[in-house]
Nucleic acid binder design. Structure first.
Lengths: 335, 335
DNA sequence: CTGAAAGCGCTAACAT
DNA sequence: ATGTTAGCGCTTTCAG
């Protein structure tokens, strides 16, 4: 229709820098493209170039706001570069490292964003023998250079500093499993804030909660039983753990924040749904997702060798679950 | 390596029914496939068959547990049939019907699962001129035959019936926008339950909340201001609205469930995080997602013309936000 | 400045 | 019971 060879069209649409095309020809092609509603066929392009122009993202729990934020960012980042995002759910209970292979070997994706790493060893082994690049998102692992994380340490530190600024000194921590990167960093951030303020670290104020509401509830209960009246604030490793803790405190008749201040890690709409709305530390999850997608595409397209980045921004969002320490607190159980 | 033509391999792997293959040959092929770790190249298959073997799903809010459940199901359903699921986020604030076209015209997907339909008219028009099948998930629209929904009506009815069984008669409804299918059905279910119990419908007990926490909070406040003491239970159109309402009630010093019982629609882990844990009605969202994917694939592959299905199951999950009505209730505002 | 030709890895129709 | 052939729609090298 434009009276030119398809190869010319291909080069023009592909933005070939070595193409010297006459303005008039370019016009004719553009008009024809518009008139025909022409879109390159991705399958043919993929076959020819041996690339799929899509990214895969492996996710363990879709309903965790942390991951939905990351996905949202990743989808944007992929779309920015003309890539699609293919989601692969991977059950944490029955993780199967073969899904990596399935996606890559079938040439469905050019690279992987991985947010799942429970059984680290097996998964890392599977990833490493993969013929495609991958970047860990919100995870770090020994021997893996490609990884994008947020400032877990700084976020935790900021949260605890905020509590200290409110006058709290007896600050407990509902921690995660310290074998995991994020939990470890947050524990270190907690300790750093205490140390800088000259508050001695008391190991008995750290109780391990997993990332579930039940875990948070149990941990809070342990804290109340072993340390009643010996803490006035709690920093929880996660929103979900914080929510569980709130429930445990409510059940014991404590008022939040009058009796105990609570801060959680990660922001999200759930934080506003809790009672009282939860003070949290917000980290740029969506931005991290977008960046990770961009970086992965850069690696795929050979513009970059690897990526190791930490998003430093942290922001404490004060809601109603925290309050200044009052001199005369009343920890008497009501009802 | 197996000493046969690639077309034979193709037919065997593709499960061609008309292929009569010698057991011995089959063995040789299988061995070679295993030895080489051979996987068909999807791009070539796509080019040849003019199909992408992937489904697209359009989602407005990823962090809404309703949609994460649907995605999870859809991803499973797609994987069952060897399809991938490609997610396309579509901002409800700035919905862009062109994303449908982008996905389909680039031959990235063979069909679309659509859960987004705010600006119905424009979107439906865009979808209809699409050269690919689509099925609405959790939505219904005039003139669209393909649609899979849950029993919004029955779920709402069951929720209200549960309240009635607890002795409540003055039951308010925080509704959604009645122009939307789901909200309308839930309102009808509410009314049907009242009617069957011989309780007159009082329009002043229905207050519109949108699907946000703020909306629920506002609506609950309206209810308290205009109807104080004239209702003992609330059925909220959504989990999120229920959460907002809980906050409003707490702020006014009401105890849940002692003063007011609250039920929400849709189950999810958030329900357990609220204080008190929210009684909800659970509908099979994940199953609906899986089914929708299967049905869409059936349509794509010509085994089915269309799909119109309602998942009837509803189940009221009683948690601590509901309680039997006591004869002597105390609605006095504390504090 | 543009065209011609080859070929990516499959599948489906047709041969044998 | 299996092989041969053609071609899906692109991109890329090479020619002119």
């Amino acid at each position: 229709m434009a009276g030119v060879d398809k190869s010319t069209v291909s080069r023009m649409l592909g933005g070939d820098k070595t193409l010297n095309i006459r303005e008039e020809t370019r016009q004719r092609i553009s008009r024809a493209v518009a008139a025909l509603g022409y879109r390159p066929n991705m399958a043919a392009r993929s076959l020819r170039t041996a690339r799929s122009f899509s990214l895969g993202i492996t996710i363990a729990s879709l309903d965790n706001p942390v991951y939905s934020a990351i996905i949202r960012g990743a989808e944007q980042g992929a779309a920015d570069a003309g890539y699609s995002l293919l989601i692969a759910h991977m059950d944490e209970a029955a993780p199967d490292s073969r899904v990596y292979h399935r996606l890559v070997e079938q040439h469905r994706v050019d690279g992987l964003l991985v947010t799942t790493l429970r059984n680290e060893k097996e998964h890392l082994a599977a990833l490493k023998e993969l013929q495609a690049p991958f970047v860990l998102v919100n995870r770090k692992a020994k021997g893996v250079r490609n990884s994008v994380v947020v400032n877990d340490f700084g976020g935790a530190k900021a949260a605890v500093e905020a509590l200290i600024r409110m006058g709290h000194r007896d600050i407990a921590h509902l921690s995660g499993n310290p074998s995991r990167y994020n939990a470890r960093q947050r524990l270190l951030g907690y300790r750093a804030a205490l140390e800088e303020a000259g508050i001695p670290f008391r190991p008995e104020l750290v109780v391990e909660a997993d990332y579930t509401p039940d875990g948070g509830e149990r941990a809070a209960r342990v804290l109340m039983e072993t340390q009643s009246r010996r803490f006035t604030a709690v920093f929880a490793v996660t929103l979900v753990a914080a929510a569980g803790a709130l429930a445990a405190f409510h059940q014991r008749g404590f008022s939040i924040p009058e009796d105990i201040s609570v801060v959680g890690f990660h922001d999200g709409t759930v934080a506003e749904l809790l009672y009282p709305p939860l003070t949290t530390v917000r980290v740029p999850l969506e931005e991290m997702g977008r960046f990770a997608a961009h970086a992965l595409i850069d690696i795929i397209e050979g513009r970059r060798r690897g990526i190791a980045k930490t998003f430093e921004d942290v922001e404490v969002i004060e809601r109603r679950s925290t309050a200044p320490l009052r001199a005369s607190r009343n920890l008497v159980v009501r009802r």
